[in-house]
Simulated assay, not measured.
Amino acid sequence: MGKYKMAHTMIRVLDLDRSLAFYQQALGFEEVKRKDEFEYEFTLVFLGDGDPNCHQLELTYNYGQAVPYDLGTGYGHLAVTVENLQASHAHHKAQGFKPTEPKGLSGDGKPRFYFITDPDGYKIEIIQN
């Protein structure tokens, strides 16, 4: 059996344009691919960091969805890394994304991560690379 490689993570979104704007503005993700399935009433948009081989985020937009999705208790969060945590935090704060205060779990007191929330309520962990 061959080795498996992560391809993408899919989340459902209520408002595709709003979600695209968030992921592009907050995280700098780029639209990699879009697939409109008009017959089946959904659109898939794949986002990435510019590397065609990167793990991608798939936004699934189901036509006619009128109420927000229930995230349930099984979902945790998406995680991305950044080179400069403090600069990223300041950027997200200035953009109005309401980041949590940076925290660290190593016991040395150094901030290592914080969270922001997308328009559909999905948590995104920003981690110092």
Rank of each mutant, 00 (worst) to 15 (best):
Arg12Leu: 15
Ser88Thr: 15
Asn53Met: 07
Gln65Asn: 04
Lys123Val: 03
Lys3Ser: 11
Ala87Gln: 13
Asp51Val: 01
Tyr69Val: 13
Thr100Asn: 03
Phe42Pro: 01
His77Arg: 08
Asp120Met: 05
Glu125Met: 05
Ser88Phe: 11
Thr81Arg: 07
Asp118Cys: 03
Asp120Glu: 09
Tyr69Glu: 05
Tyr69Arg: 06
Phe42Tyr: 15
Val13Asp: 03
Asp118Phe: 00
Leu85Asp: 08
Asp108Pro: 02
Thr81Gly: 12
Glu31Ser: 07
Pro119Cys: 09
Ser106His: 14
Asn53Leu: 09
Leu71Ile: 09
Glu58Gly: 08
His77Gly: 10
Glu30Gln: 14
Asp17Ala: 14
Pro52Lys: 10
Asn84Tyr: 08
Arg12Gln: 12
Lys35Gly: 03
Glu39Ser: 12
Gly107Asn: 12
Arg12Glu: 11
Glu37Tyr: 14
Val32Phe: 14
Glu31Gln: 12
Ile126Gly: 11
Glu31Pro: 00
Tyr63Glu: 02
Gly104Asp: 09
Thr60Pro: 10
Gly76Met: 13
Val82Lys: 06
Thr81Ile: 08
Asp15His: 07
Val32Ala: 15
Ala90Asp: 15
Tyr61Ser: 06
His8Val: 12
Asp51Arg: 11
Lys103Arg: 14
His55Leu: 07
Asn84Thr: 13
His55Cys: 03
Asn62Ser: 09
Pro99Tyr: 01
Asp15Cys: 02
Asp36Asn: 12
His8Cys: 01
Gln128Met: 12
Val32Asp: 15
Thr73Glu: 10
Lys103Gln: 14
Thr100Val: 05
Gly109Phe: 10
Gly109Ile: 02
Pro102Asn: 11
Gly74Gln: 05
Pro68Gln: 09
Gly64Cys: 10
Ala7Met: 02
Thr60Cys: 15
Tyr114Ala: 06
Val67Asn: 12
Phe42Gln: 02
Leu85Ser: 08
Gln128Pro: 05
Cys54Trp: 00
His55Met: 04
Phe42Ala: 07
Phe38Val: 07
Ile127Asp: 11
Lys103Asn: 05
His92Pro: 01
Ala87Val: 14
Ala7Val: 06
Arg112Tyr: 07
Gly104Ala: 14
Tyr23Ser: 09
Leu16Thr: 00
Asp118Thr: 02
Val45Arg: 13
Ala94Thr: 06
Asp120Lys: 02
Phe115Gly: 02
Arg12Pro: 03
Phe29Arg: 06
Leu59Gly: 13
Thr9Gln: 10
Pro52Tyr: 03
Ala21Val: 07
Gly107Arg: 12
Leu14Tyr: 02
Thr43Asp: 08
Gln95His: 05
Glu31Leu: 04
Asp36Ile: 06
Glu125Arg: 07
Asp36Ala: 09
Leu47Ala: 11
Gln95Glu: 15
Gly76His: 13
Gly64Pro: 10
Leu78Val: 08
Gln95Arg: 11
Glu83Phe: 04
Gly109Thr: 03
Leu44Phe: 07
Asp108Asn: 15
Gln56Trp: 05
Leu14Trp: 03
Gly76Asn: 10
His55Gly: 00
Val67Cys: 01
Phe42Arg: 06
Asp17Gln: 14
Phe113Trp: 01
Gln86Ile: 13
Ala26Gln: 05
Phe113Asn: 09
Val82His: 02
Tyr63Gln: 09
